[in-house]
Amino acid sequence: MGFNGKYSIGILLTFILLAAAMLYSNPLITLITGMGKITADHFFLSRILLWVILIIVFLYSIFVEKGTFLLKEEKKYSAAFYSKAALILYFICILGGAILNTFMMFVIEEKISTKLLNLIPIFRNNYFLIIFTCLTAAIVEELLMRGYLQPRIEKMYNNPAIGIIISAVLFGILHSTYGTISQVLGPFFIGIVFAIFYKRYSNIKILMICHFMIDFIAMMIMNFMDIKHLSVF
């Protein structure tokens, strides 16, 4: 099997595993542990599952593809560049996400995700879970979506734009389990911004930092905000 065939299987494997984790991790954990409802421990185990998926894909890249996990060599930059790039990316994503959310609220009067509302009490003042969840999303999602998928899609089609678009589409689809259009369009927009940055600057660590900032600040705001005001946020 050629590299394109191995890359195709790896891309499909990654997406299927992530989709299955998003859709079926809660029922699976309930079946194994007997926990009837989603608790902090329940959610923590679902994040552990994402790390397991990262390990599986990493092993696939080493033993099946017989190559490196990251096809793009990491470029080194100064500490000042890290700080500036992370902040610029953060504000681009927040501003773009706010515009998209406002547009959706006016066009279809979309309400806040029920799944998100159900998760808020689990995170309330649980700072360990907040930090672990944000770190998991930042590291696992960036390594898989930008580090693994994007360059392989680009190589398969010999087209950087296709790598950027498809990886962003998949990133948006994986967030559809929250049940709202905004929760798909927001990640899709972030996926486009992050993918363009990764193509241009070849540094996954800056994306991890920015991803962590986006999730952590949002979760801390929700932690201290009254639930009834979240629709405005």
Rank of each mutant, 00 (worst) to 15 (best):
N159Q: 03
P160V: 04
I165A: 15
S113V: 01
I99F: 09
L129G: 08
F194P: 03
V140P: 08
P151M: 08
Y90V: 00
V140S: 05
I162N: 02
T177Y: 14
L100V: 03
K111T: 04
I192S: 09
G191T: 08
K76S: 13
Y127C: 10
C134K: 00
G163E: 09
L135D: 09
M104A: 15
Q183N: 14
A168Q: 02
I108F: 03
A86C: 13
I181T: 07
T102C: 11
Y82H: 07
N159L: 05
Y90W: 15
T114L: 08
V169A: 04
G163C: 09
L144A: 14
T177S: 15
L95E: 02
V169H: 02
I92A: 07
L135A: 09
A137Q: 09
I120G: 11
Y90C: 00
Y127K: 06
N158F: 07
V107L: 13
N158S: 14
P160Q: 01
P160H: 00
Y127F: 11
G191A: 09
Q150K: 10
L95R: 02
N158G: 06
E141Q: 15
L174S: 01
E109W: 11
N101S: 09
Y178A: 03
I190G: 05
V193M: 12
S78W: 00
N158H: 06
E141F: 02
S113W: 02
L87F: 08
N158R: 13
I166G: 13
R152V: 04
Y148A: 11
I112W: 07
A85N: 07
G147S: 05
I112T: 14
L144I: 06
P151N: 03
G96T: 00
L119F: 05
F128G: 11
Y178F: 12
C134N: 04
K111L: 12
N101G: 15
S182D: 05
L100H: 12
G172L: 15
I165Q: 15
L87W: 01
M104G: 13
I162D: 05
S83L: 13
M145R: 07
L119C: 04
T136G: 04
G179C: 08
I88D: 01
R124Q: 12
L185Q: 03
G96W: 04
M145P: 01
M104T: 14
N126Y: 13
T136M: 02
Q183M: 11
V169K: 01
I173G: 00
T136K: 02
F123G: 07
M105K: 15
A137Y: 07
L144M: 09
E110P: 00
A138V: 15
M104R: 15
A80W: 02
L144R: 07
M104Q: 10
N159D: 09
L174W: 12
I190T: 13
G179D: 05
G96I: 03
E154Y: 12
S78A: 14
E154V: 14
G186Q: 12
S167R: 02
A168C: 05
L87E: 09
S176M: 11
G172P: 04
F123Q: 07
R152E: 12
L174C: 02
G147R: 00
N101V: 03
R146V: 06
N118H: 10
Y77D: 01
F91T: 06
